[in-house]
């Protein structure tokens, strides 16, 4: 389980979830991993079906959208310089402070499933969520993911 170095952003500065989604979406579009229009699609999808998870000690978000917007299944990571509010998944208007974002570019449900399952497992451990927010580079993140397997 490994995240590509180019898809790991440390201390992203953003004032809103929209800015986070745009910055990460741009990164994925720039590499041809997703199609033009991905940003609009993921913004709309986040509005309709929010992806903030109320994990401890702060929230994690896993924004994603329809597989048809994706060329190549990959996962991008960003830690946020300061937390931004995301709406909580499956809740009515519950806002949570998110510091860690995994943007999922998935073509089919099976793609990256193993990775996704592992990540979800890690989100349930507050210590790991804390460490994810504080990593300094892609290598450190991958080491963290490796050690927790």
């Amino acid at each position: 389980m490994k995240l590509e170095k180019d898809l790991v952003v440390i201390d992203l500065k953003a004032g809103s979830k929209e800015e986070v989604l745009e910055a990460m979406g741009k990164l994925l579009i720039g590499k041809g991993i997703v199609k033009e229009g991905f940003i609009e699609s993921i913004l709309q999808r986040e509005k309709d079906f929010p992806t903030g998870l109320p994990t401890e000690p702060f929230g994690v978000a896993i924004p994603h959208t329809d597989g048809e917007m994706v060329n190549d299944s990959k996962i991008a990571f960003a830690s946020l310089k300061t937390p931004v509010k995301f709406l909580a998944m499956g809740r009515n208007d519950e806002r949570i402070d998110v510091k860690v974002v995994f943007m999922l570019a998935l073509k089919t449900p099976e793609d990256q499933l193993e990775m996704l399952q592992k990540l979800v497992g890690l989100f349930q451990d507050p210590q790991t969520v804390m460490e994810m927010a504080e990593i300094k580079d892609a290598e450190q993140l991958n080491e963290l993911l490796r050690n927790k397997e």
Partner: peptide, 15 residues
């Protein structure tokens, strides 16, 4: 079920 039928429902299904 989830919003797209692609990500979280797949994880939940496995569990």
């Amino acid at each position: 079920m989830c919003g797209t039928g692609i990500a979280t429902s797949t994880v939940v299904k496995g569990k």
